[in-house]
Amino acid sequence: MICPRCGKDDIVFMVKSPKGDVWSAYICNTCCYSYRDTEPAENKERELYDERFRIDPDKIDSCPIIPPIPKLI
C-alpha cells in the first residue's frame, strides 16, 4: 500500500480495534506516518494528502537528529 505522506509502497497493518472489528490502523515503515481507516480521505489517500505535509523519503536521513548521538566512552 502507498503511504499518503511519503508515497512509498511501504504501508503495513499496525493494529485492529481492540473492541469489535470496527477499524484498523496502518503505519508506513519508511516515514512512520500512521492513520486509522475511519479517518477522512485526506489522511489516508496519497492524492488527497496535503502538499504542505508530504515528505520526500530520500530526504528523511538529512532531517535534524535530536538529540545528537554522542561519542562512545
Binding site: 512512520c32 505535509f53 528523511i60 532531517c63 535534524p64 537528529i65 535530536i66 538529540p67
Partner: peptide
C-alpha cells in the same frame, strides 16, 4: 534515531520532522 513528527505544538504551529529516539 528514526523519523518523528510533525506534531502540533504549544506554539500553535506544527513542529518540523526530525530523527528522534
Amino acid at each position: 534515531r528514526r523519523v518523528e513528527g510533525p506534531f502540533g505544538e504549544f506554539t500553535g504551529s506544527y513542529s518540523g520532522v526530525r530523527n528522534q529516539a
